[in-house]
Write a protein that binds this DNA or RNA. Structure first.
Lengths: 271, 271
DNA sequence: CCAAAAGTGTTGAGCTTACACCCATGC
DNA sequence: GCATGGGTGTAAGCTCAACACTTTTGG
């Protein structure tokens, strides 16, 4: 059974001979939440056949200007640089696309099947894909900004034709996002520094695609210690002003297991 | 913010120029379960300071015969071949180490920090790591087999010094295994075609490190439809003979989300 | 009959869910 | 006052952990 490669020489080590013909790229699926009001005409087709005015997920794509798949949309990404961490590469392409720092960034999966690119290409590409969450209002600004010519934002339930296997990748990223929102505390990454519980609930509702009981949601969040009240309230409402909360940095930091804390800050500290 | 790399050219595509100096390797963390009886002297130090006779997890390692880390133990693995799927590469190194087909094989994580290898090396290595489960009795045979000179099996709570960051990798793989056993149906991958509920429970107990109530465990498994009774029973016991069960292939296949079914069979079909 | 493990029944604690109801603000 | 969403209370229902109890075999 051990034919060419003997076990003794088969270790994941830098001493192994370099393999030619395999390219290593890093891509990122970047999620933001579009408030249902404030519709930005930025490329996505705005069919509102969705539920009664829930915010919806959207993400930025890059139009390819070279074959293969020239003219089609693809995930932001690029080749891994020689002296660059994987996560740094993801953050770099994210910045190049949205001019933003992510509030959350995590590795998604490494895609490396042989059929990922059309057969007329010599090189094979292995893509290590990350997924990220960015604040909705900052993303809205970024989406309107100049200087990002071939970038456009799309609703996740109205995506264009995508290059390579990027449709599968996005589907998988969505699955992970929905899963993780249920058992983890990442929803705040769509919001700003402070937020109301109603805003946080709407994030959950939008991601999960169903409405949640406000009373039960409040208790669930409060008992999880995810957030701490700031003492302040929203002003100028025509109803009882809601309390403002802040993410609780000292609580359990999501769940990445024993993987060491990474370099990209999940949230810029506030003064 | 978009400095050198413009978004328009930054897509995970085969057209990007090749990056020299980055090697791509695939490694695998292979788990089996050692029955507490039948102790094989195969390299692992058999300190029995563990709980009263629970089976324990063990895994095969490969002794490095070249610098760096010469003489130390490392995960089985090797460079990715030009025409080889990632998963196929993992299965290949698994076969080279254990001469077995895995009952379960899943991607774990891509490790790619810059400090993974000692500084005196020119090349940087990105390792895509898989984890696998193999049947205990088959693994026990394999561990005794000849022809695998630099391979030895170790108990996960008594590992030797490891090369590179492989200690972190194993710790993460263990975390994933324990997590997944709780919410998924993978424990049967440690067992043979048919098994009793007590055997399945012992797998859970060994992985989770605590005893489980037999009555509640039975109900939990039965309500999950994970297994189907074969109608047969164990014979030759000195007590009431337990029923034999079989894994239910038609039920929800673990949980990999929308990732397409892969090429490696999780369980050879029985006639 | 006895020991041992398979397998069943039952009960209470705790958590989730649904929903009734009160509170505070702008108009 | 009244409309509106913020916020609290509470009871039914479900799941899960603990453990008593019955069953079936070999000796």
């Amino acid at each position: 059974m051990s034919e060419r490669t003997t076990p003794s020489g088969a270790s994941a080590a830098p001493v192994v001979p370099a393999v030619a013909g395999v390219l290593l790229a890093v891509s990122t699926v970047i999620f933001a939440l579009r408030p249902d009001a404030d519709r930005v005409a930025s490329g996505g087709i705005d069919a509102d056949h969705t539920a009664p005015s829930l915010p919806s997920l959207w993400l930025p794509l890059v139009r390819r200007i070279r074959p293969p798949y020239e003219g089609q949309w693809a995930l932001p990404g690029g080749p891994l640089q020689r002296d660059e961490d994987l996560e740094a590469a993801a953050a770099r392409t994210l910045a190049a696309t949205t001019a933003l720092d992510p509030n959350y960034l995590e590795q998604l999966y490494a895609f490396g099947t042989l059929d990922r690119a059309p057969g007329d290409l010599d090189d094979r590409v292995v893509s290590i894909v990350y997924w990220a969450l960015v604040s909705s209002d900052e993303a809205a600004q970024s989406a309107r900004a100049e200087g990002l010519e071939n970038v456009a934002w799309f609703s996740v339930d109205d995506l264009p034709d995508l290059a390579f296997d990027h449709d599968v990748i996005i589907e998988y990223a969505l699955w992970r996002l929905r899963n993780k929102v249920e058992y983890s505390r990442i929803a705040h990454a769509f919001l700003g520094d402070v937020f109301t519980l109603a805003e946080l609930r709407e994030v959950h509702e939008a991601v999960l695609g169903r409405t949640l009981d406000p009373a039960n949601f409040r208790r669930q969040i409060e008992s999880s210690n995810s957030v701490v009240p700031t003492g302040k309230r929203v002003t100028g409402t025509s109803y009882r002003p809601p309390r403002l909360y802040r993410y609780n940095n000292s609580a359990e930091p999501v769940d990445r297991g024993p993987l060491a804390r990474t370099t990209v800050p999940l949230r810029k500290p506030q003064p």
